[in-house]
């Protein structure tokens, strides 16, 4: 049986969900018999190829996040929002009620100790979005894994269900938003 191709990415997240993924511990040996990693921070491949499964951590806070998400949607047969930020914007989205210009002014111009602050404007920097958005507001998401982070057991249950051809399901013991 061909191994499933899996890509992962962190957008506006803290890598906590990836850390939780790695917390499947020795089960990763079993996993690599069934999957092959494409683009992921785990192997540092930068471009996503044709994949069976894409796991995205974090919401969308800038234009690059949107570009990466759209690329994943194009290349991945199944796309999964992993963790609180991917699902509702999470901690980064708590800036949403405040206008972006007010935030930038406060941080780069108004903060104590900044004498001649400037708002960074290098063309290489992706532009911040006015609001942080969860993934499903921009592309179709096939599955959601809630949790901050989703526990290794949630991620494992999801992957093993999927590999076994079952509809992934979480019992009440695995469904948590924190």
């Amino acid at each position: 049986m061909a191994r499933l191709k899996v890509a992962t990415a962190t957008l506006a997240g803290c890598f906590g969900c990836h850390m939780s993924f790695l917390a499947i511990d020795e089960r990763i040996f079993e996993l690599v018999e069934h999957v092959e990693f494409d683009r992921s921070p785990i192997n540092d491949i930068k471009k996503v190829g044709e994949c069976d499964l894409g796991l995205i951590e974090g919401g969308l806070c800038n234009s690059e996040n949107v570009e990466v998400l759209r690329e994943f949607r194009k290349k991945c047969r199944i796309l999964v929002a992993v963790g609180a930020c991917a699902i509702n914007g999470g901690l980064p989205a708590q800036r949403n009620p405040i206008p972006l210009s007010v935030i930038l002014d406060e941080i780069y111009l108004g903060e104590a100790g900044i004498a001649h602050g400037v708002i960074p404007n290098d063309p290489e920097l992706p532009l911040p979005l006015n609001k942080v958005h969860p993934l499903h507001e921009v592309v179709k998401i096939d599955y959601f894994l809630p949790g901050c982070p989703p526990s290794a057991d949630v991620i494992w249950k999801f992957l093993t269900d999927l590999l076994a051809g079952r509809e992934p399901e979480f019992g009440p013991e695995l469904l948590h938003y924190d």
Binding site: I87, N88, G90, I141, Y143, F144, P146, C148, Y177, D178
Partner: peptide, 25 residues
């Protein structure tokens, strides 16, 4: 935002959402 809410784990909205199997809003 459940992860930063003191009521998380004691919240009836959250617990009802768990009961109904909500994975996203």
């Amino acid at each position: 935002f459940c992860p930063s809410c003191e009521k998380s784990g004691d919240c009836q909205l959250q617990a009802t959402a768990y009961h109904l199997g909500m994975t996203s809003a």
